[in-house]
Design a protein around this nucleic acid. Structure first.
Lengths: 236, 236
DNA sequence: CCCTCCCGGTTTGTCAGTCAATCTTCCGAT
DNA sequence: ATCGGAAGATTGACTGACAAACCGGGAGGG
């Protein structure tokens, strides 16, 4: 009876695998925005049957990563600058809500954890820092922030919303000279939280997203200009 | 070429019908929280094949209305008081964001529309008002608010989040004596919006949700007490 | 030469049937 | 009364099939 409780092989359902694989493929750019995703192709790619593929696509559709056009099938969602702005607005209030909740409800251990991650961020070289390390630290930061806010719903919504602009996030971070600003903004978040200042944490979080949005949107609009000058790929 | 643009019969795909039907069935209580939804039953109920039903269920799962337990199938999600509180927190910031955006970006016509709906609400009898009319007016109010905020993403997220607590919303509205408070809160929203006071609209919206949450959570916790005293139906 | 219409291949949307794995239930043995 | 196991039901997954809708290209007309 207790033979294999611990190492109980819970084979992740095929559907989950396809779901994750497809999500990752979209987020790291393996599938470009606007690209068509015929299910035959997905079946071969993941070695799954059509039913499984279609269920997975349906889930990503609800998350907004995929847009289905009737009788034409699923496409990788295209994020216009206007939509990106909306994403940042929502992300801002969710992050602020999490920061507020963290200041009110997180444990001392969690506050310390958050500070450690901040210290690691602050210790990065101002220029030429390893992108992967930077992204990893930011991921950890948000993971702790969401956990400590004691509001799993915000965490889930934050994750799906951030998935929608992962391509963009790289751009806002890669902007040269942005890192010191980022670190300063996050310091304000951490300091407000350590002071148990809920309103301050709220404001610091929202300000951080606002400035990240400003940078990303500027870059995005520049790209848009270039693309309009030299159109290479049309949207569906 | 322009023969039937307007009356173009776009037969809604079966999947959408099942999706909507199931969503409605859950929201108006035809399926109780915690209830098991075997796909055979759903197939018969909607006259659809298993693949279609399963895709629809997958979508509702992503919306949070349905929870699937591996190898046991889909169940109607149960909303604990703690989760309800989280829902209200998120709803509060989304609504506030919409109110803020409306104050900044809505047209004069939309502002007038909002006021008309408010007047209709204020004209209701303080007691014994028709529930259906009341709910309809609130729905219209939010529809206009979201449209005028010029942020479709907020509108979509608001809708899915509000779907999760439709059962509860009836309770918060049915509380005797609550209507005058509701009307007063909404008046503050409308007044701030007409003054183009974004910060005021934000605060008024958030305050409104906060007080609705307080009422609903009180009722919900009372029920919880009763249920614990006399357990009739166990949760899955 | 350009526009239009039709035609065939491709993809979607849907259904029905199959099959192994797993869960629930209930029955019988200890 | 408890334990163990068999029977039935349900899920998860695959396959084959087929009508309807869409796409691209070529035939035909202006």
């Amino acid at each position: 009876m207790t033979e294999d409780m611990a190492l109980r092989v819970v084979p992740r359902p095929m559907r989950k695998q396809v779901e994750e694989g497809l999500r990752n493929a979209i987020m790291n750019g393996r599938f470009a925005p606007g690209q068509h995703l015929p299910d035959r192709m997905l079946c071969e790619l993941f070695g799954a049957s059509r039913s499984v593929v279609r269920e997975a696509v349906r889930l990503l559709e609800a998350e907004g990563l995929v847009t289905t056009i009737p009788n034409r099938g699923p496409f990788v969602s295209f994020l216009s600058p206007a939509e990106a702005e909306q994403v940042y607005e929502v992300r801002g209030v969710l992050e602020a809500l999490a920061g507020e909740g963290f200041a009110l409800r997180a444990s001392a251990a969690e506050r310390a954890e958050l500070r450690r991650i901040y210290e690691a961020l602050a210790a990065l070289p101002p220029r030429g820092a390893d992108q992967a390390v930077l992204l990893g630290l930011k991921r950890d930061f948000y993971e702790v922030l969401m956990r400590g806010s004691r509001n799993p719903l915000v965490g889930r919504m934050f994750e799906t919303i951030i998935n929608r602009n992962t391509q963009l996030r790289a751009t806002s971070l890669s902007d040269p000279g942005r890192l010191p600003d980022t670190v300063a903004e996050i310091r304000r978040v951490v300091e407000a939280i350590e002071a148990r200042d809920a309103a301050g944490a709220w404001e610091a979080c929202r300000a951080h997203v606002r400035s990240a949005a400003a940078v990303a949107l500027r870059i995005l609009r520049e790209r848009e200009q270039e693309a309009r000058a030299a159109p290479s790929a049309a949207r569906p």
